[in-house]
Design a protein around this nucleic acid. Structure first.
Length: 300
DNA sequence: CGCCTTTGACCAGCGC
DNA sequence: GCGCTGGTCAAAGGCG
């Protein structure tokens, strides 16, 4: 990913607890500005320490990335950084969230195995349950999506392993785990208390495998779901929203002007780019996109 | 039959 | 120490 697609993440203040963030993020209109291009700013992937994706995963995906227009409809489908309070603000971006610093590297790789074994031992003695070691936290990324469905299609297969009522929210929180063996990515899905139409998804961890889900012939860019080189990307979701989701149009996007949501796959993909300059850069840099976008879009 | 969801119980962390 | 809450487990059941 290039810096030109940097995410603008404003400083979040306050708690690091998720619910609080949901609140605060949601209320933060314009948390992400799409059009103020600071090409030097760090992009989302940089935040994640994934600078080696080239072209960026985002750009490879023709999938509708629902980008929220902070101006007209606050809080919808924004990426959040609920737990990235320590991350440097990265001016400029669109649908992105941020890495949680809380667990990024504080995980002493050291004797995790040993610890785990010990703990498993002790726990088995107590109860044949729970193999959790000292609750290690993976980097987490959260973002909001306006959607009717809770579980958004993101190209990966998930198994629901729990659901809990959340305090101060009438909506339960669902817990999903990537079904791929050896991939311990998890995600939590819940609806925003303040706006039930908004789904807050929190990814935790990074996929260590390509997206296993073959595309349903949904989008024009059906390749989307599979073409995703999910090398280590935990939250492709913002790029792969299913048709169930109400596409959110980034009103800042020049493409949005001539495109409506019916062509969401292409449009939304583009929606991150706010200036024609950025767009042309996109077209130059990412030939892939050219294959995927309707020609008339490219001409625009 | 395999995979998934549901759901109640359990556990750990945290605040009081 | 106790209670609350979030997170996870695992049995049971459903579905294709």
């Amino acid at each position: 990913m290039e810096g030109k697609e940097a995410v603008k993440i404003e400083n979040f203040v306050g708690s690091s607890t998720f619910p609080d963030h949901i609140q605060s993020c949601y209320s933060l209109q314009g948390v992400f500005d799409f059009c103020e291009g600071d090409k030097n700013s760090l992009g989302f992937m940089e935040l994640l320490g994934m600078q080696d994706f080239s072209p960026s995963l985002f750009d490879m995906l023709p999938v509708p990335s629902v980008v929220q227009t902070a101006a007209s409809n606050p809080g919808v489908t924004k990426m959040e950084s609920p737990e990235a309070l320590n991350q440097p603000a990265t001016p400029n971006t669109s649908s992105i969230s941020s890495a949680s610093s809380e667990a990024l590297n504080d995980e002493p790789v050291k004797t995790v195995d040993n610890e785990e074994e010990e703990q498993q031992k002790t726990k088995k003695e107590l109860k044949p349950k729970k193999t959790t070691q000292k609750r290690q936290r993976e980097p987490r990324f959260a973002f909001m999506t306006k959607s009717d469905v809770d579980h958004l299609e993101d190209g990966y297969r998930w198994r629901k392993y729990g659901q809990k009522a959340v305090k101060n929210s009438p909506f339960p929180r669902s817990y999903y785990r990537c079904t791929s063996a050896s991939c311990n990515v998890k995600k939590r899905v819940e609806r925003s208390f303040s706006d039930p139409s908004i789904v807050v998804t929190t990814y935790e961890g990074q996929h260590v495998h390509p997206s296993p889900v073959m595309p349903r012939p949904s989008f024009a860019g059906a390749a989307s779901e599979s073409g995703f080189s999910a090398t280590a990307f935990a939250m492709p979701m913002q790029r792969r929203l299913s048709l169930y989701q109400q596409p959110y149009v980034n009103s800042f996007s020049p493409l949005a002007l001539g495109y409506n949501e019916t062509s969401n796959a292409s449009f939304l993909h583009e929606s991150r780019f706010c200036t024609s300059q950025a767009r042309s850069a996109l077209l130059e840099d990412h030939g892939l996109l050219q294959d995927m976008l309707p020609s008339h879009m490219l001409n625009e």
